[in-house]
Simulated assay, not measured.
Amino acid sequence: MFRLFSALTTLLFLGSSPLWANPITLSDSDDWRIRGTLGLFAAAKTNGDVTVAGNTAALDMNLKDALEHLDFTTTGRLEAWHGRLGLIAEGHYIGLSETATLSAGPGAGRSAEVESTQSWLGLLVGYRAISGEMGNGRPYAFDVQGGARYNRLTQSVVGSGGLVNAGGTERWWEPVVGARYAWEIADSWTGAIAVDASGFGANGNDLAWSANLAISKQFNARSSVVFGWRHYDINFETTRSDGAFGADFYSTGPFIAYAYTFR
């Protein structure tokens, strides 16, 4: 069971931060600039603890372990900027399933069918706080974002013979803030450092944060590939009628994304 939830926690956050480490542009314009991004975060290491229906286990997994039980996942981000102001939407879905033996808690030692799906939609406003040129004449920019994220988590654990039957759906809103610094490395190459944080105690999420280092290669006026490294950390805990539910772990590893500029 908890290999499944390690896979979930390793992959379910691939859509939020790595994809926006690369800015849509380093220069301001009165025309609209619109960009969409799709990508994958490959967590090379996940470590911490998860709790489901009062069952708790430690996580210590690599990428191969996490990918074994992935059913389906998709993620994306859309940014639209006009001058120094931007509107940002991000969406994500992941589904996982596995037959496993519960390792701790009320159902310890029992075999169970486990299913879990996670989805969210984030809506943010961005502001280009600083932009200019470095000493070598190449541009740089610093922007900040703030908004809200709607989360939906559904999970079930059904043991053989009906001895274990737990599950349900959690829905919640939480605030999210972020900042991004980007600079032109060379012609068609851009670097970026981005950080974000969410939760702040809202609806059980004490704090989730990530830090990202990215490099983008632009192939033509519309297409770019973004790659880099991401570290993500979360501390979430709530109590349901079937017991405690929580996650306290970190994931770290490389990511890659494709970005398309519509205009």
Rank of each mutant, 00 (worst) to 15 (best):
A80L: 07
D28F: 00
E68Q: 15
L78S: 02
N55Y: 01
E79N: 10
A108C: 05
A42L: 15
L102C: 02
L67E: 11
T74I: 14
A44Q: 14
F72M: 09
H82K: 15
D49Y: 12
N55V: 01
L40Y: 10
W81R: 15
A100S: 14
K64A: 15
A66M: 04
E98Q: 15
A53S: 14
I24H: 06
V114E: 08
H92A: 04
K64L: 05
T101I: 12
S27L: 11
D49K: 14
E113Y: 04
S111F: 03
G107K: 07
L38M: 10
L102T: 09
A21F: 04
A66H: 06
T56E: 12
G105D: 07
G91I: 02
I94P: 00
A57W: 06
R84C: 01
E113V: 03
T37S: 14
A44G: 11
G107L: 04
A108P: 09
T46V: 15
M61F: 11
A43D: 10
A66E: 02
T74R: 05
R77N: 07
A66C: 08
D30W: 03
G76L: 03
L40I: 09
T74M: 09
A43N: 08
W32E: 07
G39T: 02
A108G: 07
A42N: 03
S111M: 10
S97E: 08
S111C: 00
F72L: 11
N62R: 08
D71W: 05
A80S: 10
T51P: 03
G54T: 04
A42R: 06
T51A: 12
T46W: 01
D65C: 03
D71T: 11
H69T: 09
S103N: 10
G54V: 08
E79Y: 01
V52R: 14
T51R: 12
N55R: 13
G91D: 02
R110T: 14
L26M: 13
H92Y: 03
A100E: 13
W20Y: 08
A42W: 06
K64C: 00
S111G: 12
D49W: 09
T51M: 07
S111N: 14
S27Q: 14
Y93V: 03
M61N: 15
N55L: 02
A57V: 07
R35L: 01
Y93I: 03
R84K: 13
T37A: 13
T56F: 01
N62C: 02
A100F: 01
L87I: 13
T101L: 05
